[in-house]
């Protein structure tokens, strides 16, 4: 497949690109100058912001799938850099930017979308419950999680309105297993390589021709496979998700 990856300069997107590059033709979209170094071997580099409809339209043209990692970019380098400006930018980027991306994608014939959401939207629940995809999200007002949740809703509505496959992955807290050795384990931990695996698997879903919205749209909780988990990953197993980095040292201790 020809796949567009957003926020391509982010560590998450780079991991996704590394996972996909041997099997697919990649186009990497970001307006971060850091993207340009050494990425040509991975995929075609396209500079642009999700908030620039023309740039996005050019980026999605010819693609079969879009992986919207939803990794928030840095706020614009010009103008007010205070907390308010950053939060305003993040909200606009997550909502309007996601709409621009998916609108351009459906107009150019893209049929598969994968969106990177977050399990942080369940942070307010107590520790002693088992949270599946059936649980009601209760995001807090912190902009990183709330805006990502709003982007998930935008993604869902495109699956409702168009014959496309849209899959949201609610990712745990991204870490690298080797880098958190010795730390107190977290039930929300997710190794970045396993997150990339989940994106890869989600791209295999192809339900755009299904008349049922509930088949075109799917949600999966993605985190490590740990004893007595807080977040259930049984649904993700149905698409083949098998996390390889499960923090055994911490959970056995």
């Amino acid at each position: 497949m020809r796949i567009l990856i957003t926020s391509a300069a982010s560590p998450m997107a780079r991991a996704v690109a590394a996972e996909l590059k041997d099997d697919h033709q990649l186009r990497l979209l970001d307006d971060d100058p850091a993207l340009e170094t050494g990425e040509e071997e991975v995929g075609e580099v396209v500079r642009g912001s999700l908030l620039d409809a023309d740039a996005v339209w050019q980026a999605v043209r010819g693609m079969d799938a879009v992986v919207h990692t939803a990794e928030p970019p840095a706020a614009p380098k010009t103008g007010n850099q205070d907390s308010m400006a950053k939060q305003q930018f993040m909200l606009d980027w997550a909502t309007r930017g996601t709409h621009i991306l998916f609108q351009a994608a459906v107009e150019t014939g893209v049929r598969r979308f994968v969106y990177g959401s977050t399990l942080e939207i369940f942070s307010s629940y107590p520790e002693d419950v088992y949270i599946s995809e059936l649980w009601k999200p209760r995001p807090g007002p912190e902009m990183p999680a709330m805006s990502r949740y709003l982007g998930e809703l935008v993604c869902r509505e495109f699956a409702r309105d168009f014959p496309v496959t849209a899959t949201a992955l609610r990712l745990g807290r991204i870490v690298i297993e080797e880098e958190v050795e010795g730390q107190r384990p977290d039930a929300m931990w997710l190794d970045r390589r396993d997150a990339a695996q989940a994106f890869h698997l989600a791209l295999n879903r192809d339900r755009g021709d299904d008349l049922r919205f509930t088949a075109r749209w799917a949600l999966y909780h993605i985190c490590a496979d740990i004893p007595n988990p807080r977040f259930l990953i049984d649904s993700a197993r149905t698409i083949g998700y098998r996390p390889e980095h499960n923090f055994h040292k911490q959970w056995k201790a």
Binding site: T95, H99, F102, Q103, P139, G140, P141, M146, Y149, L150, L153, V154, E157, F158, R160, D161, F162
Partner: peptide
């Protein structure tokens, strides 16, 4: 709520979610 992707209904649904969260 089934907003669809139209600018009016979608953005108002998102605004409701913002209100609900805060």
């Amino acid at each position: 709520a089934m907003a669809g992707t139209g600018y009016y209904t979608l953005t108002r649904m998102l605004s409701m979610e913002v209100c609900r969260v805060l």
